[in-house]
Design a protein around this nucleic acid. Structure first.
Length: 512
DNA sequence: AAAAAAG
C-alpha cells in the first residue's frame, strides 16, 4: 500500500514517469486500509521545556512575531481537530501520524490539489510535469496548513521518500506573488547537492508559473558575492554559508520574504549541525521585515532538536510520526559480521558488487573523508568500477561524481554522510553501512537518525531496497542491537562468506 | 578522532 501512496508523493526525475502514472495513485482514500483507524495519538507540545539555551529564547520571542494583524488569538488549549484529520487520511498510508494544530485553527486534509486554491499554472506543473494526481498523505495534511492564513509555522515529520520536497516546494511556489519581482521565499539545505536537487524539483513544478529561482551555493570560479548584483529571483534555495553571505553583503534583500523553509530541519537546528547559521538567518529576517512563516521538514527529529524547534516556533502546527513507524518495511535490513576489518572489502567485492551490478545502483557509506577516498582507491586498483564523494573534493569534482551517478554511468558510489540525507535517486536499491553511523559526542552510541536517513537512500517512493550493515567489533554489535530495538525492527544476520545466503536474502528483499 | 558550509 505504501508504494502507491509514495508514488504520488514522489519528486523523482522523468526517468520513472511510466510507472508513476500507471499506478493507481488516484485512490488516496484506499478504502481497503480503512480498518487501520484508531491512530495512537501521543501527547505532544506542553513538554517542550528541556534545556534550551538563552539564544533560543531570544529567537522564540522574535520568531513568533508573525507579520500581519492576526496576532489576536492566544488560546492555550489545543484543538485536536487532528484526530478527525487522521481518520480521513489514515487509509492512504498505514503509518501513524499525530498532528497538533496551532491554536484553534481547523484544517481539513486535502484530497485533491484543486481544493488547495493554487494557481492554474501551478496545477499544470503538478499534473503535467510532476505527474501527480492527488496529494499524498503528508501533502494532504500539511499543504492546507502551509497555504491557509494566518500562515502558521509548521514542524513536519514524514517518512523518507514520502514527498516532503513537494510539500515545501509547492508551498513556496504558491505563497510567492508572481508579480512581485523580489526575493519572497528562502529554502535552506544542509548540502549543496540537496540544494541543487531541490531547485530542480522547483523548476519542474513551477515551470508554468513564471516564478524565478536561484541556487545559493558556493560555485568555484563563479562570481563572488561582491561582484554579483542584487538577487531579483523570487525563490532562493541554498546552503547556510552562502545565504548568510548574500544577506550580510546586502545582495539578498529580506524585506519581502514571506516564507522560510528548513529542509532536513533537525540537522539544520542541531547544535552540532547548523543551529547557529539557521537561527542567525531567522533573526536577519525578523529584523528586516518582522518575521515570516517558517517550515521545518525532516524525516527525523530527536527529542532535543524537537524541543528546540518547538521553542523557536512556539505556535507552529506540528505533524509527527512515531519512531517505531519510521523505519520503512520496504527496506530490508541485514547485519554482516566480518571477522576482521579487512574482510569488509572482501564482502564488498565478492557479495555486494556482483549483486549491485544486477540490481540498480548502490551507495556505500563510510565514516570519514579519508576512508572514502582510501576505499575508492583500493577498489579502483583492483579493477572495480566505482566513484566516491566527500566534502574534501572540489565542487566541480562533486558535481561530476553526482552527474555520473545520476545518469547511471556509475553504479556504485562510496560516500560520507554528505549524501546521507535527502539525496534522491530512484535506482538506488542497495545501501551499505561500511561503517555504522555513530554519535560523535557519544562514540559508544549509534546515530539513529543518521542510520534512518542513510538506509532511506534506497527504497525511494515505495520501491524495494536493502541495507547491509558491516560489523566487526563488539561495539559494532552493541550499536546494531541498539538500532534494532530503537526502531523495533529485527535485523537478521547474513553470513559474511556465504554466497547463497546473500542470494537468498536479496530475493527476500524483492531484489534478485 | 566526524561531516557538513564557507572563509
Amino acid at each position: 500500500m505504501a508504494s502507491e501512496v509514495d508514488e504520488k508523493g514522489r519528486q523523482a526525475e522523468s526517468s520513472d514517469t511510466e510507472e508513476r502514472s500507471e499506478k493507481k495513485s488516484a485512490s488516496t482514500a484506499g478504502s481497503d486500509d480503512a480498518g487501520t483507524g484508531g491512530a495512537t495519538m501521543e501527547e505532544v507540545g506542553g513538554d517542550s521545556n528541556a534545556g534550551v539555551s538563552e539564544v533560543s529564547e531570544e529567537i522564540s520571542s522574535l520568531a513568533v512575531s508573525e507579520k500581519g494583524p492576526d496576532d489576536d488569538v492566544d488560546k492555550p488549549e489545543i484543538t485536536l481537530r487532528a484526530d478527525k484529520l487522521n481518520e480521513e487520511v489514515e487509509a492512504a498510508e498505514p503509518s501513524q501520524i499525530k498532528t497538533i494544530a496551532a491554536e484553534d485553527t481547523p484544517y481539513t486534509s486535502a484530497q485533491t490539489f484543486e481544493e488547495l486554491n493554487i494557481s492554474e499554472n501551478l496545477l499544470r506543473g503538478i499534473y503535467s510535469e510532476m505527474k501527480f494526481e492527488r496529494p499524498s498523505k503528508i501533502q494532504g495534511i500539511t499543504l492546507p496548513m502551509i497555504l491557509s492564513p494566518p500562515y502558521h509555522h509548521l514542524i513536519a515529520q514524514a517518512h523518507n521518500g514520502s514527498g516532503k520536497t513537494t510539500c515545501f516546494v509547492l508551498g513556496m511556489l504558491s505563497r510567492v506573488d508572481p508579480n512581485l519581482k523580489a526575493p519572497q521565499a528562502i529554502c535552506i539545505c544542509p548540502t549543496r547537492e540537496l540544494a541543487i536537487q531541490n531547485e530542480e524539483v522547483l523548476l519542474k513544478m513551477g515551470k508554468y508559473t513564471g516564478i524565478t529561482s536561484t541556487c545559493a551555493i558556493s560555485e568555484f570560479g563563479k562570481q563572488t558575492s561582491s561582484r554579483r548584483g542584487p538577487v531579483v529571483d523570487q525563490i532562493i534555495i541554498g546552503t547556510p554559508g552562502t545565504i548568510k553571505r548574500w544577506i550580510t553583503s546586502k545582495i539578498l534583500n529580506l524585506r519581502h520574504i514571506k516564507i522560510l523553509v528548513f529542509d532536513e530541519a533537525d540537522h539544520m537546528l542541531a547544535q552540532d549541525g547548523f543551529q547557529d547559521d539557521s537561527t542567525r538567518i531567522i533573526r536577519y529576517i525578523v529584523k528586516d521585515n518582522g518575521g515570516c512563516q517558517v517550515l521545518f521538514f525532516s524525516a527525523t527529529f530527536d527529542d532535543t532538536v524537537k524541543n528546540f524547534t518547538v521553542k523557536i516556533a512556539p505556535k507552529a502546527n506540528q505533524v509527527f510520526v512515531k519512531k517505531e513507524e519510521l523505519s520503512l518495511d520496504v527496506i530490508k535490513q541485514y547485519r554482516v559480521k566480518c571477522p576482521r576489518e579487512a574482510d569488509k572489502v572482501a564482502v564488498l567485492k565478492d557479495r555486494i558488487f556482483p549483486a549491485a551490478e544486477k540490481l540498480g545502483q548502490s551507495i556505500i557509506f563510510v565514516r570519514t573523508r579519508a576512508s572514502a577516498s582510501n576505499l575508492h582507491r583500493r577498489l579502483d586498483e583492483d579493477g572495480y568500477k566505482c566513484t566516491s564523494i566527500q566534502g574534501g573534493l572540489s565542487n566541480e569534482e562533486r558535481d561530476r561524481v553526482i552527474r555520473e551517478f545520476r545518469c547511471g554511468q556509475t553504479r556504485i558510489l562510496i560516500a560520507t554522510d554528505v549524501l546521507a540525507r535527502g539525496f534522491d535517486q530512484a535506482q538506488v536499491t542497495l545501501v551499505v553501512n561500511y561503517d555504522l553511523p555513530i554519535k560523535n559526542s557519544f562514540p559508544n552510541d549509534p546515530d539513529y537518525e543518521l542510520y534512518l536517513h542513510r538506509i532511506g537512500r534506497s527504497g525511494r517512493f515505495g520501491r524495494k531496497g536493502a541495507a547491509f550493515n558491516f560489523l566487526v567489533t563488539g561495539t559494532d554489535e552493541d550499536n546494531m542491537n541498539k538500532i534494532s530495538s530503537y526502531f523495533n525492527r529485527e535485523i537478521p544476520e547474513v553470513p559474511w562468506d556465504d554466497d547463497d545466503a546473500f542470494e537468498k536474502v536479496l530475493k527476500e528483499a524483492g531484489l534478485a
